[in-house]
Design a protein around this nucleic acid. Structure first.
Lengths: 347, 347
DNA sequence: CCAATATACTGAAACGTTACAGATTGCCAA
DNA sequence: TTGGCAATCTGTAACGTTTCAGTATATTGG
């Protein structure tokens, strides 16, 4: 299956996609000159440069990605690596849109590289690096000691992590300040007179688990409240598990009067559990929850919410990777997003 | 920036990624032979074939995508084209996972091609086709007379649509039977004694708008219920708009006693609007809603739900596109997914 | 006026792959 | 023995791009 039409050499025809050769023929120059003129090389005369660029624009020339990639190794691809089973839904959607927003006016494409619970999270990253499938990688579910980040640093491939690491290594990241979130949540609950608080944590093992737990603990002692341990669930658990265990917890004598939840879906289950136990949100217990879309207040007005913007995260991560690819210092490509205030329902 | 190391010709070295040349050197054969041996060409001796494949596996040879693409035009890419502003969140997430599930053990990569409200939806498709960026395309938000489908049919590029068209043209699709959904919803409401029903429709202009409206209308006359027109909103409207207009509707004397909603997020707003008007779900009015994740029953137990599986849609769409690429008849690559029963809350 | 040098451009080679058109060998029928 | 042919294998060219190592022409300095 050879795609060639008939032509042997120069294409004066009209239908085929224009290449450098087409441009060379049209301008009467060599392909080398055309190639350089298009990238503003200094050794090309100013007028020639303009002329070539004009013609290129007129006929809608676009460099052939395969040609560039084969010759230079540059893929013009950013890969987003996702856990297909545990990633938060709105996270996937929003982060993709955030990334595409940033790369929209660049030659970059976004490819989604999935992996599942059963695989080593390093697998997809190794694949990308070994096959040279991407110029930059974005990973999530970052761990304090993250083998993927370490691996990519060793191999020298630009990447950015959603969430920080804690390995003494410098790399671009974007993170939400979960320490601050947990602290604000605790203070908001304390302000409502709640002083026996439970925390539904992020997945154990991820960096922001630690941040959240620490923010929670520090604020507890700051406001003089006590913790009701609730370590049997995290937001990675199923709705049913969270619901059931919350109900169990709320039936105990020493039940909490305030709960902090790290994810919106978990919050739905928590509230269901609370109500299963015959208690009423806002009266017997208050709940502060992170959310990434403004839906929780439709669910129960009594909820207190803090917003996390995943689309922003996507944009920041894309900017970071592109920055690194462009030669910026990894250390300058780190950002931390502050939580909003704790918001009650308003009209 | 030339990536070459030092070598001029044969690479007996170890570090570089193996190519056909590496394999040729190791096996003592020519690159042509190696190339054909790897794709089980009949004119290669059986033993040679096995030998080459063994060595290839041992050293972890993987064809260079840029080489293949440049030579053959085959990209091994499927592109998913998404509206970055109006697509349902869980749709994006689930459909991506559904697609990646199917292409996981193929050489295909998934790229996400976004477009926004301000652009012509044809733009991204045109880009993909003109630049030959993908072997297959998946589009959503399908219209009865869809210029994108027409364009791709003309250009002969394999694609599949989420939702059907109605142009008398044959192409692969996957669709949810929204006619049946609306009908089931109406019948379920009628069974609860509701007979003044309103419909919150899909976006006007999309094919499944028509299906839904027809299913609704046909079932209405079947059960002898009447319609309360509610054409001022669709599920594309904002939460606030839907909520406000639902509240307005529910304050009228001729308010409906049953509502059918085509999307979960809209349902949250509808319920909020109902309650804004001082009415109670399950007593004054019943609501049947489609949902794609099992969350609505946590929201209000009184809701009646019908499940739509977007992950399945993603898988089916991927299978359809791959099938077409593989030479199957487009007409055989169409599937319609039946709605679940209308489900009340249970325990 | 000549040589040196800067300016503007160019052909060939290479990236890894596949298709085409041979090339080599062994075997069989005539 | 020879011609033919099947079975295997191979070199070359081409896909579109960029880089290297030039070449040709004009400009400058002495």
């Amino acid at each position: 299956m050879d795609r060639r039409v008939t032509k042997k050499d120069d294409d004066t025809s009209g239908k085929e996609r224009p290449t450098l050769k087409t441009l060379a023929f049209m301008t009467g120059l060599g392909v080398t000159t055309v190639s350089r003129a298009l990238k503003d090389a200094p050794e090309i005369g100013a007028e020639t440069r303009r002329r070539v660029q004009l013609v290129a624009k007129q006929i809608g020339y676009r460099p052939n990605r395969a040609g560039v990639r084969l010759r230079t190794g540059k893929t013009n691809v950013i890969s987003l690596v996702l856990d297909t089973e545990r990633e938060i839904m709105s996270f996937v959607s929003d982060i993709i849109y955030g990334v595409t927003e940033v790369i929209a006016d660049t030659p970059y494409h976004l490819i989604v590289t999935p992996y599942s619970r059963s695989q080593d999270p390093l697998d997809p990253v190794r694949y990308l690096v070994e096959t040279g499938s991407a110029d930059g990688v974005i990973i999530s579910r970052t761990q304090p000691n993250d083998p993927r980040a370490r691996y990519m640093l060793e191999r020298g491939i630009p990447f950015a992590t959603h969430g920080r690491t804690d390995m003494g290594l410098v790399h671009p990241y974007h993170d939400f300040d979960n320490y601050a979130f947990a602290g604000e949540a605790v203070r908001a609950l304390a302000a409502k007179g709640r002083n026996r608080l439970a925390l539904v944590t992020p997945p154990v093992g991820l960096t922001y688990y630690g941040h959240t737990v620490n923010g929670f603990a520090d604020a507890l002692s700051e406001v003089g409240a006590s913790e009701v341990p609730f370590n049997t669930v995290s937001i990675d658990h199923t709705i049913e598990q969270i619901r059931m265990r919350t109900a169990q917890l709320m039936r105990r004598d020493d039940r909490p009067d305030g709960i902090v939840s790290s994810a919106a879906a978990a919050t739905l289950a928590i509230v269901a559990g609370i109500e299963d136990a015959g208690l009423k949100l806002g009266r017997d217990v208050d709940v502060v929850s992170k959310q990434s879309s403004e839906l929780l207040h439709l669910f129960r007005r009594e909820l207190l919410v803090v917003n996390e913007n995943f689309r922003l995260a996507g944009s920041e991560l894309a900017r970071a990777v592109l920055g690194w690819i462009g030669g910026a210092e990894p250390g300058t490509l780190q950002s931390l997003s502050k939580p909003s205030e704790v918001l009650p329902y308003r009209g």
